[in-house]
């Protein structure tokens, strides 16, 4: 069955991964801008990174019949350096009109600091000013609950950003209701140890009737699995899900959210 990978950091993956994902039925990958595993020294480093994910990765993906889209920002891990963050935010508008750019992301919080929050709000302003979709990263582990609450509170201050145009990613059992009940979309990330397993993801999908939720691998430079979505599709079938409902989660939902950008289109 075909599927969409709505959150993968392909700059960190090999071309073999593209091939394996294509063989598993992947038709589109969406790549949020993120941390490269180290702090970049200058805004120029981000300029080249934005060129990489808007120009080069789409070509690499196309060789395997996969459409490639991306999101732009400076991620929260590098937001503690406010001056650098401001410079990078200044670069974003010139890339927003490129064909595969879906919006601003993945922005959010990491350690729930004042500077992270300030830079998060600066990005929200850019998204509001340029009428962009927003993809939000929530913090890891013990920081997730507090960060998710701070993020939801900050979003409510931007009346121009409608909740149905914002997805809050990496939700778990203790944050999913808060996100969905406020009208936002939620992302469930299938990632070893620090996030969610296939069965927990399916539990949450069943609890919330798979409404306004997508599922992703967030594969990146860490130990992670680019095939986490098709593996979870297999578990869904073992748990008695119909092909239509599997497709609803791995195709209809992400396509519906991203189509709001006006740029996302698949056959």
């Amino acid at each position: 069955m075909n599927y969409i990978e709505p959150h993968g950091h392909m700059v960190s993956r090999t071309t073999d991964d593209y091939e394996r994902m294509a063989l598993a039925g992947c038709q589109a990958i969406c790549e949020p801008a993120f941390w490269a595993g180290f702090d970049r020294a200058s805004a120029q480093g981000f300029y080249d990174y934005f060129r990489q994910i808007t120009e080069y990765e789409p070509k690499r993906a196309a060789r395997y019949g996969i459409a490639h889209y991306c999101w732009l920002c400076i991620n929260p891990k590098e937001a503690e350096d406010v001056q650098l963050a401001e410079e990078v935010i200044g670069l974003i508008p010139e890339f927003l009109n490129r064909p595969g750019v879906l919006g601003i992301g993945e922005i959010g919080l990491n350690k729930n600091s004042r500077n992270e929050l300030r830079i998060f709000e600066r990005h929200l302003q850019v998204a509001q000013d340029h009428d962009q979709l927003v993809l939000v990263h929530t913090p890891h582990l013990e920081d997730k609950l507090k960060g998710t609450r701070l993020i939801v509170d900050a979003l409510k201050n931007f009346s121009g950003l409608r909740p149905e145009r914002v997805i809050i990613d990496h939700v778990e059992e203790h944050t999913i209701d808060h996100v969905l009940d406020q009208g936002f979309w939620a992302g469930i990330t299938l990632y070893p140890e620090s996030k969610c397993t296939p069965h927990r993801a399916i539990d949450m999908l069943e609890q919330r009737r798979a409404e306004r939720i997508w599922m992703n691998s967030a594969c990146d430079w860490g130990i992670s699995d680019p095939l986490a979505v098709p593996r979870t599709m297999q578990e869904m079938r073992r748990r008695g899900w119909s092909p239509e409902m599997v497709r609803h989660v791995v195709w209809d939902n992400p396509a519906a959210f991203m189509a709001q950008s006006g740029k996302f289109a698949l056959a």
Binding site: E80, N110, K111, N112, S113, R114, N115, E116, L117, L141, E142, D143, K144, L145, K146, R149, L150, E172, E173, H174
Partner: peptide, 15 residues
């Protein structure tokens, strides 16, 4: 998950 979570609500001064 709640039991492992930071119960505070204010942003920290610095990461």
């Amino acid at each position: 998950l709640l039991s492992f979570s930071d119960p505070s609500s204010e942003p920290v001064a610095k990461a």
